[in-house]
């Protein structure tokens, strides 16, 4: 199984499975639609029979927990897939060997209750790490201190539709800390942000608020936090 983690129920034949995966380097620079396409093609190469939606333009039934911002890799993202016929998580893991792109890392696969709510509905918070270049630790620390001490941090909303409107980023940022062991010459920033629909904090927005918008070297999501009952068997 070459390093792919599997829990006790992985030999059970099920229709729905949850893949925990990481992306790095090249795959940190794709959009969520593109990442969906990468997964779809990887699963087709693996001959994993995905279930398709009905209608004129049938699409495979796959759902991510949350889109990754372009420029951000991941250490533990989540994807639910629905199959045409029951497979075991083990079988899927085996089929994926040798057909995944170099920068896509399958961490684990587990079966999920068919009736469990969609991943995006269960997602509460997300954690990110950002490496910054051309920044000194103490200036980052004082920017963090200033941010966390504020009650409100107003930013312009993204997207053309919302031009001119602003929102308060501060309550979306649950934790914000300097990481001391980042490889030189970079300085690391760790954050936990809200990830509920309509109340999502983004790492690039946090950098904007801290005035380090031009400094990111590397960004990755380290954890997705789901509501306690996640439906995993």
């Amino acid at each position: 199984m070459s390093g792919i983690g599997l829990n006790a129920a992985t030999d059970e034949f099920r229709l729905r499975h949850r893949i925990t995966f990481g992306t790095s380097r090249s795959l940190a620079y794709v959009s969520v639609l593109e990442l969906g396409r990468v997964w779809e093609r990887t699963l087709r190469r693996a001959h994993v029979p995905l279930k398709y939606s009905q209608g004129f333009n049938p699409r495979p039934r796959m759902n991510f927990a949350a889109p990754l911002p372009v420029g951000c890799g991941s250490e533990a993202d989540l994807l639910d897939i629905l199959m045409e016929e029951p497979w075991s998580s083990e079988g899927i893991a085996r089929a994926l060997q040798d057909v995944t792109p170099a920068d896509l890392n399958v961490v684990s696969i587990a079966p999920v209750e068919d009736s469990a709510p969609a991943l995006s509905e269960q997602l509460v918070e997300a954690e990110y790490k950002v490496w910054l270049g051309h920044v000194k630790e103490d200036s980052l620390q004082s920017a963090i201190d200033q941010f966390t001490a504020s009650e409100s941090v107003s930013l312009e909303r993204r997207g053309r539709r919302h031009r001119g409107k602003s929102y308060n980023l501060r309550p979306l940022v649950k934790k914000l800390e300097l990481i001391r062991d980042t490889p030189s010459p970079w300085v690391g920033l760790w954050m936990r942000v809200g990830a509920r629909p309509g109340a999502t904090g983004r790492p690039d927005e946090v950098l904007k608020a801290l005035n380090f918008i031009d400094n990111p070297q590397r960004c990755f999501r380290t954890r997705l936090i789901l509501e306690v009952s996640s439906g995993t068997l």
Partner: peptide
């Protein structure tokens, strides 16, 4: 280090299957 400044950075990174 350059990629966050440009449009469609996925063009410049390789990594294709």
């Amino acid at each position: 280090a350059l990629l966050h400044r440009v449009q469609k950075p996925g063009r410049y990174v390789g990594g294709e299957f």
